[in-house]
């Protein structure tokens, strides 16, 4: 903030200097220009006739999609079980992989800041930046379609997420507690088990449940690319435009997501 002396001698208070204000205005200008350009591009790629027609189409789909075909639920129990397994087994595998990565990535536990830490960080960022659907696509191309590809896709995708949160928790631990265990003459691994692990255990449990919740959501759609679970049924129903079935599947997914969130909230509440 600055004060200016005005012609009449009084001081005028403004929040920013003139230069700062110019920079800000310029920034806003560029931002608006970029947005307008982006919108224009989207608009050009859009067939506006369909858009004006959208309310009618939406009404049409809604009409066809209701009521849901409740009897179809008999065919969904298997896929629901598969979806649950993809999420749960995928989460378990990813946790086994994420723990060592996190310890290698945390500044205070990594054996080498120069070489190993960057590699661990690279694993974290690359597994995190690629969506599980893409991992599933890739794995299906490699090991064929099915539940197994889904599990591996979820597992790989979750490594980065879990390892990132976990290594941040490791970096935040209280170092004097670690120091105290070191001072007793404990070995490196004993210091780990007594000094570090108890401190990060609550964070670890929280992360595991949190990721499991997310994975329930993600595993419901993996079937769209052929990686098993209820998404397969969704994809099949969409292909034949069986809208009443689609509605039922969406309802099932919604219920699964809500239950997943409820369970994870309960468990987290119990831990913390």
């Amino acid at each position: 903030m600055v004060t200016h002396t005005q012609p009449d001698g009084s001081l005028k208070w403004t929040r920013r200097t003139t230069g700062e204000r110019m920079v800000r205005w310029f920034g806003w200008l560029v931002g608006v220009a970029v947005f307008v350009y982006a919108w224009n591009t989207i608009s050009q790629a859009t067939t506006w006739f369909f858009v004006w027609d959208a309310p009618r189409i939406a009404g049409d789909i809604f009409g066809r999609a209701t009521p849901p075909r409740w009897s179809y639920i008999d065919k969904l129990w298997g896929p629901i079980w598969d979806t649950l397994n993809i999420a749960t087994l995928g989460t378990i595998i990813s946790l086994f992989l994420a723990v060592p990565v996190a310890f290698l990535a945390a500044r205070n536990t990594t054996p080498s800041k120069m070489f190993i830490r960057p590699i661990a960080l690279l694993i974290i960022v690359s597994t995190r930046s690629i969506n599980s659907l893409i991992w599933a696509l890739l794995l299906i191309a490699i090991i064929g379609p099915g539940v197994f590809a889904g599990i591996v896709a979820i597992a790989i995708r979750s490594i980065g997420f879990c390892a990132k949160l976990l290594y941040e928790a490791i970096e935040e631990i209280n170092e004097t507690q670690v120091e105290a265990i070191t001072a007793t003459g404990g070995s490196r691994w004993q210091v780990m088990v007594y000094g570090i692990v108890p401190q990060i255990l609550p964070a670890f449990a929280g992360i595991a449940v949190f990721r499991w919740d997310i994975n329930i959501r993600e595993s419901t759609v993996l079937g769209l690319v052929g990686a098993g679970g209820i998404g397969l049924q969704l994809s099949a129903s969409l292909n034949v435009l069986a809208w009443p079935q689609v509605t039922l599947i969406l309802l099932v997914i919604l219920v699964a997501v809500v239950i997943g969130e409820w369970v994870s909230a309960k468990v987290r509440g119990a831990i913390i």
Partner: peptide, 13 residues
């Protein structure tokens, strides 16, 4: 044996 200022007990044990 070492004794610390902030006790440095591992609090969750």
């Amino acid at each position: 044996g070492m004794i610390f200022q902030e006790y440095a007990l591992v609090e969750r044990l």
